[in-house]
Write a protein that binds this DNA or RNA. Structure first.
Lengths: 394, 394
DNA sequence: GTGCTTGTTTTCACCTCTGAACTAAGATGA
DNA sequence: TCATCTTAGTTCAGAGGTGAAAACAAGCAC
């Protein structure tokens, strides 16, 4: 209700600059002329604004295109080397640090394995800080060129500067990872839930591209979702929105590791699938899952049904344009079972919203979490490039 | 992703005017001085802007307040008689038309009973149009003073000017109610789902007041929800978001009138409750429900549990600040069972999001749907008062 | 009446956008 | 070769908006 804040004449410029930069970023190399059409701004404004961006080296020229008998268009694009973003994926078994340029091309990366159940926050913070140094020196990038560090973690991240995390399965309850990292770097930090960073990645660069109302679900050890409403990730009041894995699909059903019963995760999480199929894992879950899928076990069919119910609830409640299934379990299931998943979803949702939704597989693979984390930095950059620069320098 | 549109210097004015008007509307009578603090605008801007609003008679003076030894403050408020809004509630058993002033005080109303299963769209359109004439003449208001007509209907309303409705339980599939009404009036029309208009009413004037992330659930014959994200009602891509009643809480459970199985509505909708309690209704559902509640039937306890599961799924997925329970069934259940409902919700949701949510009863009663429908008009007015005026005159 | 306090209006400098005129750069054809 | 046409991009004057500060208004205290 509150929301619309006052605007001063300066905000216009900032806003329009962001609009222009976004258009430039997502429309690849394009001409000023084209930008006037895309943004709705006048040619005059585009001209002065691009002149500014060019002089700041945020935007560079990228060749020409002849036009029908007239002056050729000069193509412009965002300078991919204007700055870099670090993306970090903190997962159950590893910490991965990647360095990306502004086009989100990975320039360097490094992995640190974690012993299971060895999730000391200090250790992880040290890994991250060390990782940042490693990727920077590997890629020959200096810290001043880095616009920020994005970190994707499991669990719920409190809003606020300290990046306080609650992750039951990780043994973390109130760990201020942001504050820990702050002690070792002065770069801007962005900490967010890993399912959300993955969602962001698929939304911007993967299968969700262009959708403004979408849900990106992550099926892995845990089960989560990113709900995108009107182009922005929906976070809720304490930033935990999208905890799809622990929504109930069978009142009073199977017990779940969260302590509840009948959670979706207790049916379609990897542990639940293997458990229901009677497989005692020898450590390689991917292999185990492949085996279950290859068998004609009725568990497969059931899993599809349960997943369909979970997706159908999203269809009814969120009415998205697109549902993207990601996470390694999701991809592995989807590769062979997508038609069945679609059918099960249709069977359990209302006709109108189902008809408006397309269900597709994610296409960014396992690095999506780190990429999405870096995208948090990119997002900030596109919104206010100059400000990001200043903060990074400070 | 697209979202931020270009801004011109004119948008600033419109936007700031809306900010000012909203502040004035929701802060009751207040002074210019106070408005500068509330809106963040400069005193100069507030002064010129209020001068304009005063001269247009949108805002009027409302007395003075002395200040500590200085010049007294002149209080301002929105002129409640600047214009009026019509709100219509189209329900299973009746069509209700109400006339509201800008303070949302009901000035006149009229009811038309509907024979069950007599839902001819033409008839309903005639009722609405006749109702508008009746309330206007009853209140002595001329059509030029009316800013618009809001209509709340069951089912899914397609986005678009024709107000096309799909309401299975109503026997409507693709009824262009907006277009039917357009033939009989030139006033601006706003058609929306009734659960959403009720939600809007509770959000603006009822128990949800002030919340920016909230869910307002409606329990009645049907079961629905309004999801409010960041102050605005979330609609999804085809405007059907919030179909909570047909989300599944028991995979493969009780059959539902929607054709599916295990829907929430098949457990906590009034028909389901009575059916599960073995009551064969003699027509007065409210009485029947009271009887079930008075009995010590285990159905009551079960209903609370199922409702708790449904609410918990919202808590996990949406992470709202507040959940408002409305609709006559919701109120009747909540009056005696709210603590149990809270407990059942807590049992089925994650601790962090549950802790951030308060669950309360709606307080606007059965007229909330019509009030909310009128609020659609108010919302438009607050966003762009002058434009609404012009349209209304056209 | 004079000073003090607080609320409201006016003045003025500064910003941003746009439309229109203007410049740039190539194609075309006599 | 050069005038003409076409399309791209730049410059400039003007409209409209904001905020800071000064001016004005209206009470109170002495």
């Amino acid at each position: 209700m509150a929301r619309p804040q006052r605007r001063t004449v300066r905000d216009i410029r900032r806003g329009n600059r962001a609009v222009l930069l976004r258009a430039l970023y997502f429309s690849g190399p394009t001409s000023r002329n084209d930008l006037t059409a895309r943004t709705g701004l006048s040619a005059a404004t585009v001209s002065t604004m691009t002149a500014g961006l060019l002089s700041e080296n945020i935007v560079v020229e990228a060749g020409q295109v002849e036009s029908d008998g007239g002056r050729p268009r000069v193509l412009l694009r965002v300078n991919p080397e204007y700055g870099f973003a670090v993306g970090v994926d903190v997962a159950e078994t590893h910490v991965r640090v990647g360095l990306f340029d502004l086009e989100m091309t990975e320039r360097a990366k490094v992995d640190y394995m974690l012993r299971p159940a060895r999730h000391d926050p200090e250790l992880i913070a040290r890994h991250i800080l060390a990782g940042v140094e490693v990727v920077l020196s590997d890629a020959g990038v200096s810290p001043e060129q880095v616009l920020g560090i994005g970190v994707g973690v499991p669990g719920i991240v409190e809003p606020g500067a300290d990046g306080v995390i609650h992750a039951k399965t990780f043994g973390w309850d109130g760990v201020p990872l942001g504050a820990l990292l702050r002690r070792g770097t002065s770069l801007p930090l962005y900490v967010d839930n890993g399912a959300k960073t993955m969602g962001q990645a698929e939304l911007w660069f993967g299968s969700g591209r262009g959708a403004s109302d979408a849900v990106i679900v992550l099926l892995g050890v845990g089960v989560g979702a990113t709900i995108v409403a009107d182009g922005t990730t929906f976070r809720g009041v304490s930033s935990s929105a999208g905890e799809w894995g622990h929504t109930k699909i069978v009142a009073n059903g199977r017990p779940c590791r969260c302590g509840g019963r009948g959670c979706l995760e207790a049916y379609v999480g990897i542990e639940a699938i293997l458990d229901r199929a009677g497989v005692t894992s020898r450590g390689d879950w991917e292999d185990d899952l492949a085996q279950v899928l290859a068998s004609k076990s009725p568990v497969v069919e059931e899993t599809v049904t349960y997943l369909g119910v979970g997706l159908a609830n999203l269809v009814n409640l969120v009415n998205p344009e697109k549902i993207v299934i990601g996470g390694w379990v999701g991809i592995q299931l989807g590769e062979s079972l997508l038609p069945g998943i679609r059918r099960a979803t249709a069977d359990n949702s209302l006709a109108e919203p189902y008809a408006a939704t397309s269900i597709v597989l994610g296409r960014l693979g396992p690095d999506a979490v780190a990429l999405g984390a870096a995208t948090l930095v990119l997002e900030e950059f596109l919104n206010a490039p100059q400000v990001a620069r200043i903060t990074a320098a400070g």
